[in-house]
Design a protein around this nucleic acid. Structure first.
Lengths: 253, 253
DNA sequence: TTATACCTTTACGCTGCGTGAAGGTCAATG
DNA sequence: CATTGACCTTCACGCAGCGTAAAGGTATAA
């Protein structure tokens, strides 16, 4: 059985333009060209087109489909698994997006309040930027680009309620820490509670938690004067106290 | 505070190319152009850019964002709600896709078995095409384009297991119907069971079920010789019998 | 003065076709 | 036999949202 371009198109449910395009990008060539220059397709081409359409339904890009169908020895399993990962990521992202859209609708009938949403968005970006400027190079050297990029991405993808949560946590930590500092005991209840909240706070920004990283960060609070200044603002010695509390906390777990 | 293009880009986390593009499509114009032809942005532009980026995070297309930010009176709520619908559809589609990919991986280590998958895909398309050719015009006139397009889309998006299910159902219906026909009683147990299975089968292809539509279809089985031929193939009178059974079934519900 | 880091416009590239335009071919019809 | 209509062909632009040169002007510090 032989098919002209339109016949094949009808059979498979694709346009003639699509078939010409597939010819152009060498993913499906006609079996032969007749004396008038018409494209003639045979059974083999029908089979191949069906393969192509099958993978296309799985939303694979054509250049990948090309690899799969042109090298018959190639195993599509790995490509599909990889593709599956991408789809899962896409869905996660989509879920976040939907949540954000819904929150926006609910909050303001869709209108951004300059005082809130905008500041919020601006704030997140500013935060990432500031962090980059302040600590970018050294932290990137220490932890590698990937870790930092992931963290930045996580910050930017925080929803407003998550961000509010982080802010509240930071306040609680501050209060608790001031209280604990008075007792002078980094192993005490309030100090340990502060360390735990600090871990919770961290997990909003880091994509994975480890005791070691947490302990390291605590040490950095003392080593780096920019951090020290932040924590010692009201009570000198608070940064060191927090470090001790965190170290006791991470050791005890 | 005034910003050059790069400053603004850094502040907001977008490329200079993006800002030039936004200028080009009239979505964000600089406050002024200085004597050297440089774009100079002010606070108002920062605000506007933040709005734009906010909506962009919600994945709205730029032309829609343009409408929202250029007409300050316009309420974004409806646009967002509409957008939300699209996102939800997208997620549904994505879920189907993931399921299909996973099934494919599980079934064959990703390789298509020509005898199964291909036939399957081909079959679905053939089915839709055949239906279009046979009944397209009259059914479209009767039920409207939308209903038919939706139904066709649903058929094409069936997963293999759903399709297998449909096939099994069709077989069961046939067997049951032949059995019931012998009793001659369309209100009997087996005939009513057949009608119920027929409803279940239908719901795989129709995007919504109604008793009226089901009853109408049953009548069509008798009125239209193409259907009648199909059901009466082994036992003349089966189509009418099925119609009666379905009518009793839909009336009793 | 020169290096370097900015800035400008212009324009092609990417994906997967849809949609003409301009022009041949084939089969049936007046 | 010429015309009609339904095919076919090859360009080639358009779509979204920029990335990425290329080619050249400008600001600033060494």
């Amino acid at each position: 059985m032989e098919y002209t371009i339109q016949k094949l198109g009808q059979l498979a449910g694709v346009s003639t333009r699509t078939l010409r395009y597939y010819d152009e990008i060498d993913i499906l060539k006609p079996a032969r060209i007749n004396s008038s220059g018409y494209r003639i397709y045979g059974e083999a081409e029908v089979d191949r087109l069906q393969q192509i359409l099958f993978y296309k339904e799985l939303d694979l890009p054509l250049h990948q489909i090309k690899v799969i169908v042109t090298s018959q020895s190639f195993s599509p399993a790995e490509a599909l698994r990889e593709h599956r990962e991408k789809l899962l990521n896409k869905r996660e992202q989509l879920d976040r997006l939907i949540l954000n859209v819904e929150q926006t609708i609910a909050a303001n009938e869709g209108r951004i309040t300059m005082k809130d949403q905008e500041k919020f968005e601006g704030f997140k970006k500013q935060m990432v930027d500031e962090n980059e400027q302040k600590f970018g190079k050294e932290i990137r050297e220490k932890y590698g680009d990937q870790v930092i990029d992931q963290s930045n991405k996580k910050v930017l993808s925080l929803t407003q309620s998550e961000h509010d949560h982080a802010t509240k946590l930071a306040e609680e930590i501050h209060t608790l820490l001031a209280e604990a500092f008075k007792t002078g005991d980094p192993a005490g209840d309030s100090a340990q509670k502060a360390a735990e909240l600090h871990k919770e706070w961290l997990m909003l920004y880091w994509h994975e938690y480890s005791k070691e990283a947490h302990a390291n960060l605590a040490q950095m609070y003392v080593d780096d004067e920019r951090f020290t200044a932040y924590y010692d603002k009201e009570q000198p010695g608070t940064a060191a106290f927090l470090r001790d509390a965190i170290h006791i906390y991470t050791d005890s777990k």
